[in-house]
Write a protein that binds this DNA or RNA. Structure first.
Lengths: 210, 210, 210, 210
DNA sequence: GATGAATGAGACTTCATTCAT
DNA sequence: AATGAATGAAGTCTCATTCAT
């Protein structure tokens, strides 16, 4: 999907970034291909050399976003630290994403995601939104299971809990999007306690001091 | 905003319902005013007697959705039952919504909501998305505070916790949207336990048996 | 297909005439819908109220042309004159068409006709080019048969001869299109003699004096 | 116009043949240069080494077609046979062309020819369509005149009759294009008789027995 | 000479909105 | 109030042609 030639790869990236910028500024539907091309410093036709349609640009942006999430998640998972630390890091990771992302950008991801739900993701066999989420879920489950195995967590329904975890993280993200004045640190603390103290951590295991 | 004359009121409702149907079928941007008019059994021009623009129809649909949520919430809040029961009911209420709503309809609400985030809600003083959420939040806080006052809940940061509760409910909704095969009952149970057993309920208060 | 309301009918005609003019000036593929709209004094969108696509305008023009041909043919056929006179008139009619038609217009009809051969006519069940021709052929056959019955013509294979007649008329039209300096009167005379003296007229019937 | 170097000549021919194939398949305007290049096994840019534009390819195809016609015509003309035999052969030659040509190919020639009438042929001094036809006409006249000189034909206006002959042949071709179910043999017979028996052959000359 | 990535003018068509009836 | 014919801005995408390699 992505070109192999480094020069082309560069242009491919430039177009995605330009698209991201334009969509963030003008919205998903008001953002014109012409502007993306101009922003990327290429001709209008060139955009169509790299993407078959506007929707394919949407998909590419969303995939890039999920790549980022998944990479962060995998990095955390591969660390040699206790599972409860990993869960803590996940929450931090997720909530900190908003600090390095402008609201406009976050809105765009959300908008693409919502619009994508309808048409070009669900029902498509490969690379679909649902598969991306399933991958995230399975990584989270692996962390939870590790915790149970290590005796750090109580026995939990890791599958359902992983979904709850994902859902909570997404939900917090959305609400932060809507209400930037949210005290994100306080929210982080409460959420972490909800999951660690409340559900996961064994009564007699080492409590995180906060 | 809504007309007072019953005949007009009827037409107003018919248009919203038609719009809902058309959007659910064709998507937010592919759904045409002409089709809405036809579906509602009125002329194209008539739609513009009731709504200034297509976006205003979006807003109306979203408001209707929030009215529904808020009404349910208020009903629960006004019941003469312990706070923990209320929290439990909230969760039930929210997750059961999906049983009476088709995926297409839920998608439309999500799509409008996401698109609305950008343009026609945020930044608008009245009736804005954020105000609707603040109202929800305040109702939830009132329930949480009642619980603390009644000694059912531990002392909690009710403001932050209300946000977490909202966020979790929204997150679960979204994930259910993406993955209909989710075991919603199991998820409900886990979520309720997370909130009640884990965070809210006092160690020595009556535990809900499940 | 054509609108019934007289005001709309007028607009419909205006658009066809405008299209004819624009195509004649700029060619079939260079002729822009925008120019047709401007020429017709309507908005671009209005063109699409009356025609679903550019091709449908092509078809309409071609049909109008065939209507004209067929009407003239029918008029001749319904006259109370001998069959040989009718054949003579047919030839006159056909060749005189070019005197009231500009080359540009004739070219457009030819261009549409040729392009039409390929895509939007052949293979379509109703109103197709071939049906229009079959109608013409049948009218010609009726004239030829009348001549045989009346004893003016020798016994002829009227079906094949009708085709030859059509083909000859079309061929002459085309060559006149390509070579305006053709002496059309001389051509008319020769053609008429070829058909009447040569093939059709009985040796002992009254010879047309020329 | 055509390259001299045999390797280049080969490529030149390959491109024309590829163009013919692509146009026959996709139509004149839908047929893409890119596809022609691919079909010819060369790069897109290479096409432009051999042809200045898409229109020049049209011209080349049409010229090739006329070369074919003219060559056949000359061959017949150079035979040592009576003029009436030559006319008969001309008709056979022309009508038999359709047996070795697919409809799609014939359509393409027609389409190019019609489109060519407008823009790139008429008005151009060299190699124009009209010159090609004049050449054909002059060959035909030479045959007709030979017949008169030899006493096989009556005295005829050979110039006008040559045009009529050309026109008839073209007309028959077009109608055969539109109606493949035409009984071409019967048509051939009728046409030959029309010209030979009817107009050309002297009353006391040897009649062709059929 | 050969190539094909890049280009951008331009076209068709859609559809929210208006407004005369 | 109701209508729907008319509108035209706007947008996506195509594809002939160019030109650096």
């Amino acid at each position: 999907m992505t070109p192999q030639d480094p020069i082309q790869q560069e242009k491919y990236t430039a177009i995605i970034e330009a698209a991201f910028k334009v969509f963030a500024r003008d919205g998903l539907h008001k953002g014109k291909i012409a502007d993306i091309a101009k922003e990327a410093g290429v001709g209008k036709g060139t955009v169509y050399e790299y993407f078959r349609s506007k929707e394919e640009i949407f998909t590419a942006i969303l995939n890039q976003f999920f790549d980022l999430i998944q990479i962060g998640l995998d990095e955390v998972n591969h660390l040699e630290i206790p599972a409860d630390q990993k869960v803590r890091m996940l929450l931090e990771l997720n909530l900190d994403w908003f600090k390095t992302t402008t609201t406009e950008e976050a809105l765009i991801v959300t908008e693409i995601w919502a619009q994508g739900l309808r048409s070009f993701y669900i029902g498509q066999p490969d690379d679909a939104l649902i598969l991306r989420y399933r991958k995230i879920q399975s990584t989270m489950m692996s962390i939870l299971n590790q915790g149970v195995t290590d005796g750090v967590f109580r026995a939990v329904e890791s599958e359902t809990l992983a979904i709850l975890l994902m859902a909570t993280l997404d939900g917090i993200g959305l609400h932060f999007l809507m209400n930037q004045s949210l005290d994100i640190e306080k929210l982080k603390r409460v959420t972490i306690r909800a999951f660690l103290e409340g559900i996961l951590v064994r009564p007699n295991s080492t409590q995180p001091q906060e």
